[in-house]
Structures are given as structure tokens and as C-alpha cells.
Design a protein around this nucleic acid. Structure first.
Length: 710
DNA sequence: AGAGTGGGCCTTTTT
DNA sequence: GGCCCACTCT
């Protein structure tokens, strides 16, 4: 084991937290204050003290965070770190449940349903139910799914969630509960778990199976939780149960960066930690090493508009840099143009593309920029949107693969059946009923006589593929090749997709990825829970030559020299829908805080003054910009005539003046979203009003990201 | 019962 | 602009 000089490598704040003894410990770590560093050194310190690596459990929210921390621990202490258990709550739950599945009425090779799989199962239940959505308004499958998931994560009744989140569906409450109960039993009989089941079943074992619970909790003597502000009630209870006996619970987080309330995260978990764990120690990390004082001032000033928070300002240590810049652009097209131009300019000044990132609130905000970057041949890496394992053809093949393990898994069947010629929702439902009544050994040999006549050919095709690949169960890569290369699936791809060749190549990539796994079940679990292994393979050598495009949520925990936050409009960010939620505005502001604190040296805040495709809509700058004290930022307006690069530093004669005066001409009206929309006739000054021709632009390149998939 | 076509509706974040 | 749904034709 390497020798670590803790007092030299850590500041006093961090050192205190790392060296603290056993028992409950809360570390409140501001953005850029060395949170990851503290956690990794803490683990190193435990190992150095002689703690068995296998008794340390490190829980995170993203796979990326888990991998990064484990890697850093590894480079700190060497191979001794290998035994440390680290991963997301969900992936650790998966690993544990593989050993204890029978306690919760599953077998160890249970299948994990991702959100889409789960939704399609709910949809099928909905269709078979006698509920007539025409007779009255009834929540869609995805609304039901959200309600169900939220209820489980925060521990509410279905009725309560509907009352708070969808009051207009209050009278459907009973029926929704019934649908959910059907979904639950179908899922169980298919030996499948959704994301929430992973956590819920883990907790169930901890609560109701003392023997198993004892094995689990005595195995993990030290529990560390990253991003604790993002835990929901289910996760918080899990953590509590795990640490109940030894109380060696070490959590780090920042209430100011709590941005997952929509999926049940509750800041109260971190605020109440000291009450929940008497005698806990609290450490605060407020020294920021990452950002210039100018950037921190903007972040701090913004956050001061929030009421519910610990009082704490980040204290910057870096020497002064430049003020963050606010850039008003006439349109999204010109915003993209500005950002692309600036990227090239910075690169020529020596900032590597990999040291820059463009962040946005919602995936759709990046469209114009994606096009502009492609046009200019600027390589970029897109984070967010569809992941590799969520793309249609990948999911198709995975559905077949799932059946090899779990022949009665309903949502896999539904996906496959609906792909066959001559099988629609009704036949699929009938066939499913037959499958449910068949022993799992016989499912691949159901006789034609039990299948509706028109569905017969399609059914036989699918059977053939399954039978052919079922012999490859021990070799996931071969199973995948056998499915992807089948006439049935290859022809399906050719029929459906213009880019079928790329997709076939994707499938070979998938097979290569699967080759590394000892069996199909392990491979499938990773495919659903963790695709970092795959994405890494793809882009590794380019990492430093690509600019990152990312949603703010996915950018949490990361940092870059230069950060652009785009589409800072009143209708884009804060998101109008989020603002309707309780505490929604404050959460959006925390999101803005997360975004700004990703930047080390340069921060560009841009917004278009118009958005829209059909009709042009004006928008104002985001309130997060308007509420910033003037003087903290440099303002800039891009003139509408200019191509790229032509900037004006005054707002005189600018688009915004013209737009403002137009608002008085009654050409603009409020639409139902509270947006200003163009009405009736086109104004005279055509060049200004012509809608930007971003519409006819080429679609996103499919190998970068495929939005047409699902 | 499926498949193909036209119209209304909504734009969020993710393990 | 794109998705989902409902309607209609086969």
C-alpha cells in the first residue's frame, strides 16, 4: 500500500472529515470543494487502518461517479482497493438480490425492466382492462408509471400522489390502483423487476428477512453515500437499515445541489441527518478550488434568491479571472452560431475541445447547436437523450435475449410480438394469455393450434429465432449474433430503417460487448443498469478532442475550463412545468447553480430572443439572468444582420428593441403556456420576421444520436 | 383485426 | 416538429 501524506494532500476541512473516527458523519460539501477527493481519501484511510475492503460499501447515484471514485481509490492505494463494493443504489441492489432473490419470490436470474419495458407492460394491462379512455379522461401508461414510481420512492399511497401531482385524475384513483396491482402481479409472474423493485425488494429483505438482513448488514461495516441530498425516502431507509448496527455511516452532499425532487429525492434527508443519527459529526467544506471568484459570485448571488437552504457561500481561492458573459442572440440559430464560433476561437487560444462543455436544461435545447457543430465539423459528444442501450434495435435484440433466460417475461414478448407481421395488440394479448398458462420449458414450443390464424406465421418466425439462439445461453455474444443475423430480424431492420446497415454494425458492437460476460444474465443486468462500460469503449481516444453537450442533470459532479449554458429563456429555463411544482422554482435555481459551478475559468450564458418552429415566439431572458445583480456579468447582444462572429456590445438598435416595440402592436399574444406568440399577419420587416430555416435542416446523424428510434 | 393516415397536443430532468 | 391517438380503409 502506498504511503499517503494526508495532511499534505488535503486541506484542513477535508482532513478533519477524512480522519474522523467511526460513527455517523455528515459532510456538507459545496460545489468544487473537493467532495470526491474527500470520499476517496476517506476510503483510502479506512483501508490503511486495516479495514477489509470487502466490508466497505460506497453508494452513488450514477455509474460514472462510482467508476470514477473506485478508480481514484485504486490509484491512491493500489490493488488493495479492488474488493471495495461501489456502485449505484440500483446496481448494488441488483448484485445483492442475485443472491437473495428467493426471499422476495424471484429466482436469481430475474430480468430487470427499464422504464420503457415497464411502460409497455402497463400499456398492455391498460388495453386489456375494461377501462374505456374515451368514456372519461384516464391517465396514460406513462402517467400511471410515474405515479406508481413516485409513490414507491417516497412511500406515499397511490391516491396521495394522484391528489398532489394529477388532481384532475382523482376520480380514477381506484382504477389506477387496480391497473398497478395487475402490473405488479404480471411483473412478478414474469420473474422481472423494475428499477423501483430493485430498491424495494432490497429493503424488504432488510425489513422482513432477519437472517438475510443480518448477512448483508454484517458484511458491510462501513457505508459511504455520495450525493446524499438526492436520496429519496426508500434509499434513506435502506441506508438506515444497513448502518443500524455499527452506525458507520458517512454521507456527503450539498443541499444546494439537490436537483432530483421529481423522482422523489428529498433534501430533508440530508437536513435531518443529524437528528436521525444522534452524536453525528458534521463537517463543512466551503473552500472552492474550481472556479474563479467571478463565477462563484454569480453562483452565490443566484442562490441567495432561494429561501430553503443552509446559509453558506462558497469561498473562492483562485485568482481573479474574467466576468461571466451574458449573450443575447436573435434566434437559436444565431445562438448556436455564436457558441460554435466561440468554441473555435477558444480552441485556437489553446483550450482543448475536451475542456469545454455546453449545458442546457432540456435535451431539445441543443438541437440547433448540434446541427451547427456538425456543419462546422466540430467533434462533440452528446450526453443525455437516448443511450446506446435504449435504442430501438438494441432493445429489440435484448428482448429476444431476455427470453432465453426468462421465457415468460411479458414485456420482452410484447416487444417481439408487436414487431411481427400480422400480430397487433389484440393477437399479442391472446398469445400472452397462452404463454402465461404454459410451463416455462414449453414456451418455445407452443403449437400453432393455440395461436390465432393470422398471427401464425409471425409467431413461428419468432419461435425459430428463439429456438436457434437458445443453445447459446452460455455465450451472450453468440446469442446476440444469432438473433441479429437471423433472416427475421435482418429483414425487419431493412424494412424499417434507412440506416439499417449502421444498426447492424451497432448490433455487432453489442455482441462484442457481450463477449466479455460469462453468461447472459450478468450481461443483461449491466445493459440495463450501466452502459458506461460500453460508451467508454466507443469514445475513449477522442475524449480530449470533443466538446461535451450535456443536460445539466448529467453534468453534475463534472467540471470544465469553459462552460456555455445555452437557451436561458423564460420558457426554457426555469422550465415552466417545473415551476408549477411545489418548491419547483427553487429546484430550478439549484439546477442553475449546479450549471454555473461546473465552470473553472470561462462561463458564457446565452439565450435566444425568439424560439419556435411553426410560428415565431418571443421570449425573455431567463429570470435567473434578470435577477442577477448587474455588474457581475458582462452583457453582449448579437445583431440580427451579422453572420457568425459579428458582435455588438450595446443593445442599441438591437433585436430586443425591435421586438419590444412589436409587442405593443398587438401582433403578439399570450398563448396557453404564457408564451408570446405571433398572431395573424406577418409584420413588414421581412428579413427580421422570416422564421429561421433551421426547420429543414438535416436530422441528427444517427450514429451520434437517434431520436427517431422509439 | 391490422396497417396506414390524418389531426391534436405537448414540449423536463433519470437510475 | 414529433408523438400519440383515433379513425378509416383493407
Amino acid at each position: 500500500m502506498k504511503n499517503i501524506d494526508y495532511s499534505k494532500e488535503l486541506n484542513q476541512e477535508q482532513l478533519d472529515a477524512v480522519l474522523h473516527g467511526d460513527g455517523p458523519c455528515l459532510v456538507l460539501a459545496g460545489a468544487g470543494s473537493g467532495k470526491t477527493r474527500t470520499v476517496t481519501y476517506r476510503v483510502a484511510y479506512l483501508l490503511e487502518k486495516g479495514v477489509d475492503p470487502a466490508s466497505i460499501l460506497l453508494l452513488t447515484f450514477t455509474n460514472k461517479a462510482a467508476k470514477e471514485m473506485l478508480a481514484r481509490i485504486g490509484s491512491l492505494v493500489g490493488p488493495e482497493a479492488n474488493g471495495v463494493w461501489g456502485g449505484t443504489f440500483h446496481s448494488v441492489a441488483n448484485r445483492i438480490l442475485r443472491s437473495f432473490a428467493t426471499a422476495v419470490d424471484h429466482t436469481s436470474n430475474f430480468t430487470i425492466l427499464d422504464q420503457e419495458d415497464a411502460r409497455s407492460l402497463i400499456k398492455a394491462v391498460l388495453k386489456e382492462s375494461k377501462i374505456d379512455p374515451k368514456a372519461r379522461r384516464f391517465p396514460s401508461a406513462s402517467v400511471i408509471q410515474n405515479v406508481h414510481s413516485y409513490a414507491r420512492n417516497v412511500g406515499w399511497e397511490i391516491g396521495e400522489v394522484i391528489e398532489v401531482k394529477h388532481p384532475n385524475f382523482m376520480d380514477c384513483s381506484r382504477d389506477v390502483e387496480w391497473i398497478i396491482s395487475q402490473y405488479t402481479s404480471r411483473k412478478a409472474s414474469a420473474n422481472a423487476m423494475d428499477f423501483d423493485d430493485l430498491l424495494a425488494n432490497w429493503l424488504k429483505i432488510m425489513d422482513q428477512h432477519p437472517e438475510a438482513a443480518n448477512t448483508i448488514s454484517s458484511r458491510f461495516q462501513y457505508i459511504l453515500v455520495d450525493e446524499f441530498q438526492d436520496t429519496n425516502s426508500l434509499q434513506s431507509r435502506l441506508v438506515e437499515r444497513l448502518a443500524q448496527v455499527h452506525k458507520n455511516i458517512f454521507v456527503v452532499g450539498d443541499d444546494a445541489q439537490s436537483i432530483y425532487a421529481f423522482r422523489g429525492a428529498d433534501v430533508k434527508n440530508i437536513l435531518a441527518f443529524p437528528d436521525q443519527w444522534p452524536d453525528s459529526k458534521i463537517f463543512k467544506l466551503v473552500t472552492n478550488y474550481r472556479s474563479t471568484p467571478q463565477i462563484l459570485e454569480v453562483a452565490n448571488a443566484s442562490l441567495r434568491n432561494n429561501q430553503n437552504q443552509f446559509e453558506k457561500d462558497l469561498i473562492g481561492l483562485k485568482s481573479p479571472g474574467v466576468k461571466p458573459m451574458v449573450i443575447a442572440c436573435p434566434s437559436a440559430r444565431q445562438e448556436a452560431d455564436f457558441v460554435a464560433g466561440k468554441i473555435l476561437e477558444l480552441r485556437s487560444q489553446g483550450v482543448a475541445l475536451g475542456n469545454m462543455a455546453v449545458l442546457f436544461r432540456a435535451s431539445s435545447h441543443s438541437q440547433a447547436l448540434e446541427f451547427e457543430l456538425m456543419k462546422r465539423d466540430i467533434p462533440f459528444e452528446y450526453r443525455g437523450g437516448l443511450k446506446f442501450f435504449e435504442r430501438a434495435h438494441i432493445k429489440d435484440v435484448l428482448a429476444y435475449t431476455r427470453l432465453l433466460i426468462n421465457p415468460k417475461e411479458e414485456s420482452a414478448w410484447l416487444r417481439i410480438l408487436n414487431m411481427q407481421q400480422g400480430i397487433g395488440a389484440v393477437s399479442a394479448g391472446q398469445i400472452m394469455a397462452t404463454i402465461r398458462n404454459t410451463a416455462k420449458e414449453d414456451v418455445f414450443n407452443i403449437s400453432q393450434s393455440q395461436i390465432p390464424a393470422r398471427a401464425s406465421a409471425g409467431w413461428q418466425d419468432a419461435q425459430n429465432v428463439l429456438q436457434a439462439s437458445s443453445s447459446q445461453i452460455a455465450k451472450p455474444g453468440f446469442a446476440i449474433r444469432s438473433i441479429a443475423a437471423s433472416d427475421l430480424y435482418r429483414l425487419h431492420l431493412e424494412r424499417e430503417y434507412p440506416d439499417w446497415k449502421d444498426r447492424l454494425e451497432d448490433l455487432e458492437q453489442l455482441a462484442l460487448f457481450a463477449d466479455a460476460y460469462p453468461d447472459v444474465a450478468t450481461f443483461l443486468a449491466d445493459a440495463v443498469l450501466d452502459d458506461t462500460a460500453f460508451t467508454k469503449q466507443k469514445g475513449s481516444s477522442y475524449d480530449n478532442e470533443r466538446i461535451v453537450l450535456s443536460t445539466i442533470h448529467q453534468a453534475k459532479g463534472l467540471e470544465w475550463d469553459t462552460v456555455f449554458i445555452i437557451h436561458l429563456t423564460n420558457m426554457g429555463f426555469p422550465s415552466p412545468r417545473a415551476v408549477e411544482e411545489d418548491d419547483g422554482l427553487e429546484e430550478e435555481r439549484r439546477l442553475f447553480y449546479v450549471a454555473t459551478t461546473r465552470a473553472r475559468n470561462n462561463l458564457y450564458l446565452t439565450y435566444p430572443q425568439t424560439v419556435g418552429f411553426d410560428s415565431l415566439a418571443f421570449c425573455r431572458p431567463s429570470m435567473f439572468l434578470e435577477e442577477l445583480p448587474s455588474g457581475l456579468t458582462e452583457q453582449m447582444t448579437i445583431g440580427r444582420q451579422s453572420g457568425f462572429g459579428g458582435l455588438r456590445s450595446s443593445s442599441h438598435d438591437s433585436w430586443s428593441d425591435e421586438a419590444a416595440s412589436s409587442w405593443n402592436d398587438d401582433v403578439i399574444e399570450l398563448d396557453s403556456y404564457g408564451n408570446y406568440k405571433k398572431r395573424k399577419e406577418e409584420p413588414k420587416s421581412t428579413s427580421v420576421w422570416k422564421k429561421p430555416d433551421t426547420k429543414k435542416q438535416a436530422p441528427r446523424l444517427s450514429f451520434l444520436r437517434d431520436v427517431d428510434d422509439l
